[in-house]
């Protein structure tokens, strides 16, 4: 069962909230202090990507973040509700995998920055997180990430 689950409207201003919540829960779960910056950044990147996908595909549903404390690891799932289309992976408008972000995806139509951001988001996640999996299916896409935890000694 998820330790904390968060759903937020696909708006850029809520990504910061998701970062703060994820870092707070990760800290409690025993993720090393030195790694919390990475957790914060990776969650931010995943949520930014999901918000971009929702907005460029006109999806009204919220972005979902599932934070789970497990025995020896802390895992985060960031899910979007943009289904994979029959034409194959990467066909989702604005998905960086397609290399063709939808116009206006970054709030500036046809901007070269939009493309740079999109490709760099996943690059940053894969550079930061050792255990990461990106999947997309008919129900939408999910980025799964996890970090090891050090067991905390319970004081009497």
């Amino acid at each position: 069962m998820a330790t904390v689950e968060l759903r937020f409207s696909a708006l850029p201003e809520h990504v910061r909230t998701a970062r703060l919540v994820a870092a707070a829960v990760a800290r409690r779960a025993g993720v090393d202090e030195a790694v919390l910056d990475e957790v914060r950044l990776a969650v931010g990147e995943a949520c930014t990507r999901a918000v971009g996908l929702h907005r460029s595909n006109g999806v009204d549903m919220p972005v979902r973040v599932v934070l789970t404390e497990e025995e020896k690891k802390f895992s985060i799932e960031v899910g979007d509700e943009v289904p994979e289309t029959p034409s194959g992976p990467g066909a989702r408008a604005g998905d960086e995998a397609s290399g063709h972000p939808a116009p206006g995806a970054s709030g500036e139509s046809g901007s070269e920055e939009g493309e740079d951001e999109g490709t760099m988001g996943l690059a940053v996640i894969s550079g930061l997180v050792d255990d990461v999996e990106v999947v997309s299916g008919p129900g939408g896409g999910v980025i799964r990430m996890s970090w090891p935890t050090t067991p905390t000694v319970e004081l009497p």
């Binding site: 950044l41 990147e45 930014t48 939009g114 951001e117 760099m120 988001g121 940053v124």
Partner: peptide
């Protein structure tokens, strides 16, 4: 205090 890939994109855009 915090920089993500969106910020990197803006800096690359500025450089261009």
């Amino acid at each position: 205090d915090f920089l993500d890939s969106t910020g990197l994109g803006v800096l690359v855009g500025g450089l261009k």
